[in-house]
Design a protein around this nucleic acid. Sequence first.
RNA 1: GCUGCUGUAGCUCAGUCGGUAGAGCGCGUCCUUGGUAAGGACGAGGUCAUGGGUCCGAAUCCCAUCAGCAGCUCCA
Length: 688
Amino acid sequence: MSVLCIDVFGDGVSITVSSEIMLKVRLPDGKVLEYSRRVRPLDVAEEIGPRLAKATLAAEVNGQILGVDSYLPEEGEVSLRLITKKDSEALNVLRHSCAHIMARAVMRVFPGVQLAFGPTIENGFYYDFELEHALSEEDFPKIEAEMAKIVKEDEAFERVEMEHEQAIKFCEDLKQSLKVEHLSAGLKDESKVSFYRQGEFIDLCRGPHIPSAGAVGAFKLLSVAGAYWKGDSTRQQLQRLYGTAWFSKEDLEAYIAQVEEAKRRDHRVLGRQLQLFMIEPNVGSGLVFWLPKGAVIRRELENFLYGELIRRGYQPVYTPVIGNVHLYETSGHYPYYKDSQFPPITMEDGDMYLLRPMNCPHHITIYKSQPRSYRDLPLRLAEFGTVHRFEQSGELNGMTRVRGFTQDDAHIFCTEDQVADEFRGCIEMTQLVLQTLGLSDYRVRLGFRDPDSEKYVGSPEVWDKAEAALVHVCRDMNLSNVSVEKGEAAFYGPKADFVVTDCIGREWQLGTVQLDYNLPSVQRFGLQYIGADNTPHQPVMIHRAPFGSLERFVGVLIEHFAGAFPLWLAPEQVRVMVVTQKVEDYGRAVQKRLSEAGLRVTGDYRAEKIGAKIRAAQLELIPYMFIIGAREAEEGKIAVRDRLTGDLGAMPLEEAIAKLQQEVREKTIRQVAKGSAGLGRKNEANAY
RNA sequence: GCUGCUGUAGCUCAGUCGGUAGAGCGCGUCCUUGGUAAGGACGAGGUCAUGGGUCCGAAUCCCAUCAGCAGCUCCA
């Protein structure tokens, strides 16, 4: 008698099934539930009788899905991961099943469709199809109606296993040529593959699936787009249909609300509304104009970082934004990256100049300009360096993906012994930057080399040493959320990328610290320093940029703060407004005093009601309003209004100035209210 | 670069069957001088992305180009 043990992933429930349809559920508290008719696998098993082994197994107790999967218990005990509804994994299972349901519906609406792949992604799923008809949103209601029908019918997902050859034949009979290709290419080494059947629909699939379609509580088709077969841009393009699915309607609604929130925070929208930046197609795609208000934010960030650079022993430099092509030939970037560079400028004498795509060769040029001693190291050269890369047109996106951008770049030249300390310093600086801006939710991705790949330069020993140093530093610093990803290294060395999650859950790769044993090498720039032993040695380089680029960083910040910047970054910190024009003179005097106190201030002396002026300032996300009426003018005070909390009452001007100056000095971040984007929300005064 | 969608006033958008353009916000002027999220009146503002084509006639239909959006591919 074969027994199937289901090991539970996560919270310690275990289920045992015998071939005689016996099932026990052991809960974490030790209690054992005898199986009941409500346990799904038994229902399915009974339907197919002796073919229990082929049944899809899933466990549902008292209406809760405990787990899903299906396996053939051939001999003895088989271990099977079981997923509880509480696990994030359970949603993925649900969504993948929903992808099958969607594919089934599409096949019903558009017979003859070819199926490609249909995996889950964050917050949803997609399925790639090949079909003549160009899918559009107009087709969604039809497909969704068919999906709803399938969910309502609540048919079970059934696992079917086949020998490899049998599977190929099977897919040929189904006329699913993409599946045939996948079986004979990607899966060619598998002796056995599985399919999942649901009614008339059957699809090559590893599983697992929900027990039956009814478990899908809510779903919605989202969009359709092109995607290449097997992710290869040289192969045919398929139609990718995106959708999302949840256990309940409430979850779906919450998700849709979150998407709406993201749209309202879109830096491209806020950037225009708040007059932070613009892009003018007549000048060029992907070329950013920093408008006066955006320039304030950038300058404040630069000043902040500049102070840190000096404190940490960096030496700021300025270098040319173009350079002779030879430089980039030596670095190895040209012509290797030719396609993503602006084409070189060719002079009459044949000399070629390149708009620099990176700053490193220029800093290296400074290093090389004189002999270096070990006493000079570490040499830390910093520059807000503007670079240009000709990104493909479809890759451009607001400020987060542009063709001209400024890196808060620096290159550290040091000895191998100094690598660990320097690396630590870079990480600390990046942490400080993120912490100061309230981007506290991030992970550090250590990109290591893939030992089986040959695209990396340098000896394995050096790599091992570098990677070990990184791990050591991260461990030593007690960094949480560090993950090692093999194959993610730069070709010249391992790196640590800071992947930041903003306040609505999206991930952005911003800061980076990279170890480089390649560019200093004899094959490249042949950098040297004279060691204590009076012989030449090769330095190690560290490339680092805490922000990554000012453009992307500010783009992310706009969305993170929903345009409502902390006081020290706010383009306009205070607005003085008068209740009546009779006190305009006093208002202007207050404005002048604020300006002298170093605050960025404007005044609103229009012949408008005070309510209208307040509203305008609220919508412009100005942190403080100093309101002046006859009373204040008489008492020599101002009435302070806080954008977030409203009227703070009257206070002496100097007291208010001190309060604001302190807030600027401390770079205070006042609550970023989730669910409030700031602009465009009407009749929701409390949201601010 | 690829697939699909989109392009009308500074912004957000409407414009039916093809008959040479409209709203709100914003902007300007005037009236109003007020107490914590919108006072009123009047006015200016558009070669309907650009270039071709069909038609008596094109914002509207067709083609091309450019740009934007979503996704793919890419990201030193």
